[in-house]
Design a protein around this nucleic acid. Structure first.
Lengths: 239, 239
DNA sequence: GAGTGGTCTAGACCACGCA
DNA sequence: GCGTGGTCTAGACCACTCT
């Protein structure tokens, strides 16, 4: 009755060890890790084995390596974060740059669907953020963001929120968003939505739901975006 | 005024050489490549260098490696092709399995937008395929597929078409689809669409446009799907 | 020049598939 | 038992960055 792998390669153990240390904050985002040689010496393996682990971390966007300088814990800067997780393009194919406005933040008990989506305990509280996002000054997206309150102490006092939330999650709460699952469908604008987006009721909206996942697997946010795709499109690259 | 790389690593040259040979059909899909040792000997490099090139090919889904057996040119089987390029899930999260019906195929001159999207010459011809796709017997998607005629000799005589076209492109025309760019937006069902999908006119439809790209960069198809997302959602995994 | 990551080699041994 | 890919090592040299 053994477990699946039957044997764990050394480089995999090195990888796991490094991930755990990054999760625990042994090195902050933007800081450099020890050199390959140093890591190899400390862990008692060859440099090549450390390299293989670091290469995997690089592919997964957890670290960045710069020849001649060192290996750095990846940082969610404003631009990088947008580039990875904001997928809307203008009709000419250029990347749309969003701004935010009209936000509200409130704390309340989690609802049943939120408990399921975010894997919460039954009695947990959440923060609900709503805001409008603009592209070139035009209201384009209505966002609702639900966050587990226990992960974000003091969040209600942080208004106004920055445009790129993931950067804040990382720096202020140690939550490193590394993956997200999205589901898209088409829907019609309700009356209140139409008013806020300055379009006709019943106009088509792209409905996007996202669950964002941190390095350790924690579900950090459930975001619902309702987007007027008259002037932007959602871009996906399959490969 | 030198070119960008300034120097091309050996493993990169090995990689390029292997890609070229796969494109040229030196080994057919499903066939095995020579062993690492054999390739290393033939190319006059070490086994490790060949391995690095093969690892890259593996990540890009061009080959599959099986320990104890060998390295095989990746094959677009029905299931694999669907898994990679068909992104619709049922509402419970399970993968929707489509079937196809009611197809028409015609040949005609390319229109201006098609010339731009598929990078055609001005006077080229295209095949236009239209068909309906069903999920669990219910009409769910209206597809229009535009193919450059020069890439698909005799295509008009192939009806009825298989459900998974990319498998056919690969085996019958040597066109290996390795990437695709998609753009999504929300739209309303026109009258004729509503009739064919058995929904109300003005119901919301997810509009998906895809340009599929072969191994050598050729644009092989421009596909427009108009999908009723009442019972399915389009899933994206960002990482 | 010192220190870092990037490339390349040669060789050993392990895990797997198959005859 | 043989051939394949998978892991791991030790060491050499190259390219880049900074002092």
């Amino acid at each position: 009755m053994d477990e699946a792998p039957h044997y764990r390669p050394l480089y995999r153990q090195v990888y796991d060890s490094l991930v755990r240390q990054i999760v625990d904050g042994a090195w902050r985002p933007g800081e450099s890790l020890p050199s390959e040689q140093a890591l190899a010496a400390k862990l008692g393996v060859s440099q090549g084995t450390v390299r293989k682990a670091l290469d995997t971390l690089t592919v997964e966007n957890l670290v960045e390596r710069r020849q001649g300088k060192g290996t750095y814990v990846a940082e969610h800067t404003q631009e990088r974060s947008l580039f990875r997780f904001f997928r809307l393009n203008n009709l000419d194919g250029s990347r749309a740059v969003p701004t935010s406005g009209g936000e509200t933040v409130k704390q309340r008990a989690a609802r049943r669907d939120e408990i399921a989506k975010l894997k919460l305990e039954a009695d947990e509280k959440v923060f609900e953020v709503t805001r409008t996002r603009f592209v070139e000054g035009v209201p384009m997206i209505l966002e609702k963001i639900v966050l587990p309150a226990k992960l974000f102490p003091g969040f209600e006092r942080r208004s106004p929120l920055p445009n790129a939330l993931y950067s804040m999650y990382q720096h202020d709460y140690g939550l490193n968003i590394v993956a997200a699952n999205e589901e898209l469908r088409s829907d019609l604008a309700r009356k209140d939505e139409a008013r806020r987006l300055k379009i006709a009721p019943g106009a088509p909206l792209l409905h996007i739901e996202r669950v964002a996942i941190a390095l350790d697997g924690t579900r950090v946010e459930w975001r619902t975006s309702r987007c007027n795709t008259r002037h932007v499109t959602y871009a996906v690259t399959l490969s």
